[in-house]
Amino acid sequence: MISSSMDIRPITRGLAFYTIIAGAITVGCVYFLTYSGLYTVVAAGVGLLLVILGGAASITTGPTFVEGADEAAISGTMTEENQFHPSPADFDTRTVLLFYGLGLVLWSVLVLTFFRSGLQ
């Protein structure tokens, strides 16, 4: 359940940048440089691979964060600083792989669907 104090703006900015802008630029460059359906399918495959790698990456937390977490959660003294609030400049590799891979898949499917007559 999402708490009311959770700010999703950083996540939406990261999603917008990596999925919409970076994915569109990459697939657009592939399309306009090659006009090849094969390379566009390869871009979609690479995007799918990035999504899989991003989802399979393990999350590690340091021992200093974990040591007092149970006691703080029980006593109710967990502060706002200990919650995870990612900023777009601070995304971990896993999140970047997921967002960018989704962008590659999305834009490749759109190019294959709408520009099919212009592909070789």
Rank of each mutant, 00 (worst) to 15 (best):
C29R: 07
G62L: 12
N82L: 13
A44P: 04
D70R: 15
P86R: 15
P10Q: 06
E71G: 03
T79H: 07
S108M: 04
L33Q: 03
A44R: 00
D92L: 12
V51L: 05
A89M: 14
W107L: 09
D70S: 14
S4T: 09
I59P: 08
E67P: 06
H85Y: 12
T60H: 14
R94T: 08
L53C: 03
M1G: 02
S36L: 10
T113E: 07
L98M: 10
Y39C: 03
V51M: 08
G14S: 12
L33H: 01
D92H: 09
I25V: 15
T12M: 14
F99A: 01
F114Q: 06
M1L: 08
D90P: 00
T34P: 00
P10V: 09
T93Y: 13
S4L: 11
P63C: 06
D90E: 14
F91T: 06
R13Y: 15
D90A: 15
S5G: 04
L33N: 02
D90M: 15
V109P: 04
S3A: 06
E80I: 10
L119I: 09
G54P: 00
Y18W: 11
I8E: 03
L106Y: 06
G37Q: 08
D7E: 10
A72N: 10
V66W: 10
C29W: 08
I8L: 14
D92E: 13
S58P: 01
M78Y: 07
G76F: 11
V96I: 15
I74D: 08
G47W: 01
G55R: 09
W107G: 00
L48F: 08
T61V: 14
G103F: 04
I21W: 01
C29M: 11
R9Q: 08
A16F: 11
G68P: 11
W107N: 05
G118E: 06
V96C: 02
V41I: 11
I59A: 10
T60A: 09
A43M: 06
E67H: 14
G76D: 02
T77I: 13
F115T: 14
G45A: 06
V30L: 06
V109H: 03
F32L: 10
R116G: 04
G76Y: 12
A56I: 07
T26E: 06
Y31S: 00
T60L: 12
R13A: 13
F115N: 13
A57P: 00
F114H: 07
T79E: 11
G101D: 02
G54S: 01
I52W: 14
R9M: 10
D7S: 08
G118A: 13
T40W: 00
S5Y: 04
G101H: 04
A72G: 03
D70M: 15
I74A: 13
A73R: 13
S75P: 00
G118S: 13
G54I: 03
I20K: 05
S4F: 09
I21H: 01
A56N: 05
T95I: 08
M6D: 03
T77R: 10
M78H: 09
S4E: 03
M6R: 13
G28R: 15
R116M: 12
M1E: 06
A72T: 09
L119W: 12
Q83L: 13
H85Q: 11
I25W: 13
A22W: 01
